Simulated assay, not measured.
Amino acid sequence: MNYSQTKNTMKKAVSLAKQFDGNWSARMKMALNEVYIEHYLSQQLTREVIEKLLLKGMSFRRIKKHYNVGMQEISSLLAKRIV
């Protein structure tokens, strides 16, 4: 991400965090995760995108549903190793 994309991401996260209740740091962490997930979902399905989504806490089921693919396709992408 470049500077303008990071700035835009933070703007979205802050506005989303203001809608939540509770501790600010917890709200901001949840909002940032949601904004990052939206960013990765807007990209093409690749191994790196799947790994980043899984690290952010997104489930296989939600990935399958969003990209309209089967579990076998996701597994085959994750199984590929670049040598």
Results as ranks from 00 to 15, higher is better:
6 T>R: 06
52 K>W: 04
19 Q>K: 07
70 G>A: 13
16 L>V: 09
77 L>G: 07
24 W>T: 07
42 S>K: 11
20 F>C: 00
69 V>D: 04
23 N>E: 12
40 Y>A: 09
20 F>L: 09
76 S>Y: 14
25 S>G: 02
9 T>F: 11
52 K>E: 10
10 M>Y: 15
3 Y>S: 06
37 I>T: 15
22 G>A: 00
5 Q>S: 10
82 I>Y: 01
33 N>Q: 03
23 N>M: 00
46 T>V: 01
21 D>I: 03
17 A>K: 08
19 Q>Y: 07
46 T>G: 06
13 A>K: 03
67 Y>Q: 09
12 K>Y: 10
23 N>L: 01
43 Q>D: 10
51 E>P: 01
61 R>S: 14
55 L>H: 14
50 I>K: 02
8 N>D: 14
63 I>Q: 02
72 Q>L: 08
29 K>G: 02
9 T>S: 05
42 S>Q: 14
69 V>Q: 06
17 A>R: 04
70 G>K: 08
59 S>I: 05
60 F>M: 11
31 A>Y: 01
78 L>D: 14
80 K>T: 13
21 D>N: 11
58 M>F: 15
69 V>S: 11
73 E>Y: 14
16 L>T: 13
6 T>E: 12
60 F>K: 04
68 N>Y: 00
75 S>D: 12
14 V>S: 05
13 A>T: 03
57 G>D: 02
73 E>A: 08
32 L>E: 02
5 Q>K: 07
21 D>Q: 07
45 L>A: 14
74 I>K: 09
36 Y>T: 01
45 L>M: 12
15 S>L: 07
21 D>W: 03
59 S>Y: 13
70 G>R: 03
2 N>A: 10
61 R>T: 15
69 V>M: 11
71 M>V: 14
68 N>T: 13
75 S>M: 08
18 K>V: 03
53 L>P: 12
7 K>C: 04
31 A>E: 00
43 Q>R: 04
40 Y>W: 04
41 L>R: 11
12 K>R: 09
24 W>I: 10
82 I>R: 01
74 I>N: 12
